[in-house]
Design a protein around this nucleic acid. Sequence first.
DNA 1: CTGAAAGCGCTAACAT
DNA 2: ATGTTAGCGCTTTCAG
Lengths: 386, 386
Amino acid sequence: MDFSKRFQSLNKGIYLNKNNKKHGYLLTFCYDDMVKVLLIGISCDESLVTTVGKRVTIKDVAEAAELSITAVSQILNGKGERFPKATRDRVMAVRDKLGYVPNFNARSMINHSMKTVGIIVPNLVNPFFSTFLRGIQSAMYESECVPIILSADHNETLERYYLKTFIERGVDGVIIAGSAIENKGIKDLLQPIHISYLLFDQADPISGGDQIIVNDEHGGELATSHLIHAGHRKIAVVIPEQPSQNVKLRLAGYRHTLEQNQISFDPKLIFPTGLSKMGGRQIAADIIKSKATAVFSTNDEMAIGLIRGLQEADVRVPEDVSVVGYDDIDLDDYVTPRLTTIHQPIYDMGVWACQMIMSRLSTPELSPQLKMVDVSLKERNSVKRL
Amino acid sequence: MDFSKRFQSLNKGIYLNKNNKKHGYLLTFCYDDMVKVLLIGISCDESLVTTVGKRVTIKDVAEAAELSITAVSQILNGKGERFPKATRDRVMAVRDKLGYVPNFNARSMINHSMKTVGIIVPNLVNPFFSTFLRGIQSAMYESECVPIILSADHNETLERYYLKTFIERGVDGVIIAGSAIENKGIKDLLQPIHISYLLFDQADPISGGDQIIVNDEHGGELATSHLIHAGHRKIAVVIPEQPSQNVKLRLAGYRHTLEQNQISFDPKLIFPTGLSKMGGRQIAADIIKSKATAVFSTNDEMAIGLIRGLQEADVRVPEDVSVVGYDDIDLDDYVTPRLTTIHQPIYDMGVWACQMIMSRLSTPELSPQLKMVDVSLKERNSVKRL
DNA sequence: CTGAAAGCGCTAACAT
DNA sequence: ATGTTAGCGCTTTCAG
């Protein structure tokens, strides 16, 4: 190997840190492909004496293999059929020996593909979303793609900021779950620059984009009719303060199931609160005042908080008040009483979401994909038959 | 704007998809900076007729502002003091009008900084880690840095794969929580290529790297002595099957607190199980057989599962068996009985982890940083005084 | 069979 | 006050 060249490539003997600021001058000793470096000049304590492994580039591989950069590039990318097997093997061997790892940025600039999709969820701590994310991640892994997961707290400003971050970083696609931005806003942001996206938990009549549509209205019906069949007539509903599309659908299901059973809809029985366990807990007092005998909570987190709030007020569940949740998160089995809820195939929905966006990326001309998902009632112990 | 140039830049009239494969030829109509494109040639269904917004580059801005690329670059990066205010304003205006977003890849190649840190956790669904991640994310936001969060399921192969992904993508730093790989392995992987990393939940005597060290031994002592003071003498311990460093420390605390109180340590009272609610649930039967009157679960998830398992076997908590957990996740307040546990400042630990790695990135010559974190007992209702 | 050259979008040193 | 040039690491024509 050409020693002087090696030395030259070390920033002309000036040690730069990651920000390209000068730190001092170098004394270098070369061992194979590792360079032992001593820093001199500038106040330099012992911790500065460090081992710097110059990052191996394709050029290094080419030199070591005594081939052109082009040849190496093609061989390493499996496009080197034209080279004899011996050459190819040599290149592979050199790559392994040098520990060459391609520079992703350089590559992305040419490929126009980052193999990355951005994902925005409202809240990482909510097991609904973390389970969803696991589904996504496992499917991403299959496609050798990396998810960038950001949690936006239902905060529109933050969401826009993150979306901008994604754009700037050139992600290939975006999955947005439970967005605070209305659909059109997202469309205006993403469509002009040709980034594929998938809206989750938010039906979108305008977009020609891909969608996973959960039959939330059916979920609302299921929950409500279960309660009605158990003999309840005064059924409260807990919803998030900023109800998303799907919550509205659940509410619609509730409402028309009521009507089908000759129970008139009472808007006073609708209780908006924070989308969290704490929110559910805080609304308990109001629910008690309403004299409802049952509650349909449009999400499990709130249901679990509500149960705790009720119990703290010495109201027993389900003896005094029955509760039905929505989502079927893993926690439901671990609270007391175990929570009856509407089951959604959360993990699978993550997998599907990912598969859909991946297929759109590889085949952009695909016509819009829709995936319909149905839900079911999961009976446990939080509902009492009157 | 120069129309013909515009047209030219559209890939010479050939429409390429993201993979640079030819899709057909184009008919274009220009409106302002949006180009309406009709695709012709190649079998082309209607969904192919699409709107393509060419991504605006710095060159476009420069042309529109009638300036050199350099000038624009400097002005937009706040290094344009030498230009008169009028010029600067003009550039800004053009940028906004065109909606220019810098290409992150191109920039990273020069900066040698991705403003990205990779994060590996064992399990996203565990509220301990998701809370930790929220802390990280909020601190990252302050630094305009993006976390890439990957969940490795305690699987060493997966972890290595993700670490390799991080390297390849050139992240600036890595935070690894609850790793399955032993410390040396990580060091060998990351140190040669000069990527800063922080190990969390895993004391590392070898590394000269940064660390957050939780006083886990004290936590074990706290839990155990609380139980002993409540009159318990036969105290079982639940640990994960592959106990990490910190679990071992908690166990050490347990053990020597026992000895301080003249209770002999009985290895038969140590119960390894899966690190999940389900794991805790499954070990319940064994705990009951052991006749222990109290259990110290080295993590809350397992404790919550255990309580459910106990209840399913008609063993009452805390009347028959007392339980102390570890972590203080938000759930503890919502299970019945509410879980007495060891409190860790999880969210803050995320913030600190991030701050530490950020300061290392900006000042690589910093000597190794250590952050000591103490824990405390959080009393709730899962312990009975005998 | 192989390599030279162009260029992706951007920044920084160095003119003018 | 502004522009020219070189180059980051890589891939892709295209000409031997």
